[in-house]
Design a protein around this nucleic acid. Sequence first.
DNA 1: ACTAAACATGCGCATATACTCATATACTTG
DNA 2: CAAGTATATGAGTATATGCGCATGTTTAGT
Lengths: 112, 112
Amino acid sequence: MARKTPLPDDALELVARRFAVLAEPMRLRLIQVLFAGEKNVNALVEATGGTQANISRHLQTLTQANVLARRKEGLQVFYAISDPSIFKLCELVCGSLEKQLTKQAGVFGGGR
Amino acid sequence: MARKTPLPDDALELVARRFAVLAEPMRLRLIQVLFAGEKNVNALVEATGGTQANISRHLQTLTQANVLARRKEGLQVFYAISDPSIFKLCELVCGSLEKQLTKQAGVFGGGR
DNA sequence: ACTAAACATGCGCATATACTCATATACTTG
DNA sequence: CAAGTATATGAGTATATGCGCATGTTTAGT
């Protein structure tokens, strides 16, 4: 992003939208659960403890942002992470936050 | 983030907040301008074309999130990027978006 | 002490969006 | 075709937040 030409407003809004998609705890929870692999909606509802309607909406948001991929199989719909950069994104943010929080309490599990 | 222990809700909210800070075009604009180095508020107002009040608020948000560092010098206040992970974050998102948009129009400049 | 400059902040408005409830749609099975 | 299951969506509400306007606060100069 250290480019000579500044990003136009259109591009900035796209980047902002991208970050906004990741700015909700429930969506992060879904992403985290999907790190283990593809899951159908019902499994995600149970894993997250959310309501079916709400989970469905979040899945729609994540899919429209091309973060998740949607695969329909009979009655069920399976979702999976489709953008590999999500892994690094989350690692970066977690690492940065851990550094910041080292001075304070340990909200994060153990290490790394 | 592919850890065995799932992140607790507290941590997820922290991560979400982190992303939310980066989910505003004007804040991204500020960050982009600051990639070139430390600047005072007036310079940032002129560079972004925003109002002084609004820029000041965004700077406060970014500083509270430890994305920027604040340095007071006489009448002026200088801001600079304090979290180096911001660079990689923006690169990752931009790269991912460019890939997605390759099929469509070229909103981005030339492409690194 | 007064004035001016640089920055921050209280307040109100408008908009966005996450959530819940109820209902609709799509598909399978009998 | 009827009924049931899995998922999606429309409507309404509550909360959050970005913006503009006006004003407050801090510091420098005379």
